[in-house]
Design a protein around this nucleic acid. Sequence first.
DNA 1: CGGGAGGTTGACAATCGTCAATCAGAGTGG
DNA 2: CCACTCTGATTGACGATTGTCAACCTCCCG
Lengths: 249, 249
Amino acid sequence: MPVIDSPLTPLLKKLQYHSDLRQSDVEAILALPFETRKLSRHSFVVREGEKPTHSCLLIDGLAFRQKIVGDGARSILAIHMPGDMVDLQNSFLGVADHSVQALTDIEVAFIPRAAIKKLAFDHPAVGMAMWFDTLVDASLFREWIANVSRRDAYSRIAHLLCEFALRVKVAGLGDETGYVLPVSQEQLADCTGLTAVHVNRTLKRLGEDGLIDRRTHRDIRILDWRKLAEAGDFDSTYLHLRSDDPALS
Amino acid sequence: MPVIDSPLTPLLKKLQYHSDLRQSDVEAILALPFETRKLSRHSFVVREGEKPTHSCLLIDGLAFRQKIVGDGARSILAIHMPGDMVDLQNSFLGVADHSVQALTDIEVAFIPRAAIKKLAFDHPAVGMAMWFDTLVDASLFREWIANVSRRDAYSRIAHLLCEFALRVKVAGLGDETGYVLPVSQEQLADCTGLTAVHVNRTLKRLGEDGLIDRRTHRDIRILDWRKLAEAGDFDSTYLHLRSDDPALS
DNA sequence: CGGGAGGTTGACAATCGTCAATCAGAGTGG
DNA sequence: CCACTCTGATTGACGATTGTCAACCTCCCG
């Protein structure tokens, strides 16, 4: 069966990663109404406090979720790659409790909330698949809590680099020997609850210890995966990858 | 329509909090097969690495989720109250990526995973309600990430106390003037990424500043809700309570 | 009454943050 | 093609929040 080339294909691929879908389910997904839009780096997909009526599927590029706390400090909660429903949460919960912002230039598809809800009702298998996806998201959030609360700076960064390496590999954007991560050190700091200055020093140490090599800023080479994973206390279970995923080899 | 008194009633109540369910949905929920069990404080509901085949509904008492990181330190990820499905995540994701432990003596209902899955398939409205619940859970995780990563000790603890106050009130276990929280200072530390010693000092400061009063250990009186919420940078949006919930008054 | 878990406190150490200066690189307009 | 500018990276000196260690206390429970 030829795969129809639609902007929604990344979503389909994502849902099928964990769930078996019947042809009718697939067709229903691809029949979703949507509207694509290109957004430039730094633009907001949703802002905290808004009441979005559409969910947003990331088709191309990277995006991240963030919260701003009282004193203006920012916390980055997750980084998203193509195929991720970046905004199910906000759209279904009524009021956005956090913002979503473009990390690179991105392309997204806005899908009316009602259409997703109807899809989940009419095709329970698809509803389950999306639910499943939410569960995996939550698993990453949990790991980030542990990362930020109980690991030191060195481990935190190492852990984050490991997570990115695997996810980038799954997404087909690189492999565990190296990848380009379009994240500034300040953003890395906001991912880890550190300051940009300390992130810089820590990256330097990781380099000096021979775990990574930073060609140019942003372009990360992992020189010793085992050591990095050990330093980061990294165990990929929480990513809930399929055991037959080539990224795990 | 008289509410049938079943151990599953807390689940029903929870799902109906956000979602409208039809009579047939309600009946299907109450028809779930289950097995109740009483567990004493400190016992594990699920251990990291297990492959649970049942989901666990908390009927009475409190429980918490935790992860242990490489050096043995513990991170508490969430605290659960009666009505919470404490283990959807682990049960659906195959391998438990974290543990769930009883905070007090508890009573739980174990429900076969397959029955839940079938319920979600046959009654999409129930599936949606459970999905919704997962979304709210994820929202709490996000707030905890922000709490741990970008607030100082004083704010973190204040924030946590505010969250508990509201949730306890919603669960009908106390109100915002005071409640008993059966959490040791060490557990509080693991919730906030601090040490027990520092938690102790911080609670003391909160007391000295007139925000709270600690009658006996564990029995917390909130003397000045506004100040506490301000100190904790607390905004209840992320709890996704209904705007007509009396707890918000 | 004894044991133990948990709470409290002080002295000291260290990781990490702050401030500030300098540097490197990318994009822009003349 | 070359300033010019701006963002982000790098580094050093210093400071502070938080952790560590250890002692002692308190209360609960058997």
